[in-house]
């Protein structure tokens, strides 16, 4: 049986458990996110898990790829501790501010340098930006077929794979040959926890760091200047309301609620 080489794209995001603490500095109008720890994007852990399960079944290797600042090495080690074999960090000041298209270009350049593979797996959606654009755009940049929102991956034979794709109305059954780019959703599996043994093993695994100079990439097409979309103003949605408390014994509260429902026109009796 042919061994598989699976690449998994991951990115660090501020921990979604702490998004209530994110805000905008009123003076500078910039994002305030200090003190919020970075984690591997939760949906990307599903991608790592999917790759590890394929490796367990078919044999092969699982390698991680991330475009991120240098301190992301720590997050890549977490992915290695889950069981991935090797990691590549694509890191350069010129990549900062990349939108989805520019990010897809950088990842594609990194993957092109890595060489041949059977499958690229990504999360479908990031917790911070949440565009769902990068996975299909990476497929386009690599010139490969791609599919996202994948809820199960079933190899049919050596080269033919079947995928169950979640859509609003139900599911699509999609079939095609490797290599391809697959974006998985968060229902596909439950990512494994890291073990102490895993963490210790990860310390000896290789993390390759490549800058823009190591990649075949057009510097005008990455980073903020190479991105077709440009960020404008930030706002905080107005969510605060009066928060008037209805007090009293349950019967009194019930009468107050009845009055409100009538006032809103949803109770005519």
């Amino acid at each position: 049986m042919k061994e598989r080489r699976i690449l998994v794209c991951i990115k660090p995001v501020p921990d979604p458990e702490h998004y209530d603490k994110i805000g905008i500095d009123p003076a500078s109008k910039t994002l305030v996110r200090s003190g919020i720890p970075a984690v591997i994007n939760p949906n990307d852990k599903n991608a790592i898990e999917a790759a590890l399960e394929i490796r367990e079944y078919w044999g092969g290797i699982v390698e991680l790829v991330s475009m991120a600042p240098p301190d992301a090495e720590e997050k890549l080690r977490e992915g290695l501790a889950m069981g991935a074999d090797k990691a590549y960090l694509l890191s350069d000041r010129s990549f900062a501010g990349s939108d989805t298209l520019a990010t897809a270009r950088v990842l594609a350049a990194g993957i092109a340098k890595i060489g041949s593979f059977d499958l690229v797996i990504t999360g479908s959606e990031s917790a911070d930006g949440g565009t769902t654009n990068v996975s299909p755009q990476l497929g386009e940049m690599l010139g490969l077929p791609h599919v996202c929102n994948v809820e199960s991956i079933t190899p049919q034979n050596e080269e033919q794979w079947q995928l169950n794709v979640k859509i609003e109305e139900g599911y699509l059954k999609v079939e095609g040959p490797t290599p391809m780019v697959v974006g998985v959703n968060d229902k596909i599996n439950t990512p494994r926890y890291t073990t102490v043994m895993g963490i210790m093993e990860a310390e000896d695994k290789e993390v390759v760091i490549w800058s823009a100079a190591d990649l075949e990439i057009d510097n005008d097409k990455v980073g903020l200047t190479g991105s077709p979309t440009q960020p404008g103003d930030l706002h905080e949605p107005k969510l605060q309301r009066a928060g008037k408390l209805l007090e009293g014994e349950p019967e009194v509260v019930v009468d107050k609620l009845i009055r409100l429902l009538r006032q809103a026109g949803v109770l005519n009796a």
Binding site: P14, P16, Y19, D20, I22, G23, I24, L31, R33, A127, D128, G130, T229, Q230, P231, G232, D233, L234, H235, E236, P237
Partner: peptide
């Protein structure tokens, strides 16, 4: 960030 912040994109 889950809707905590809204950003304008151009």
């Amino acid at each position: 960030f889950g809707g905590k912040v809204l950003g304008d994109i151009l």
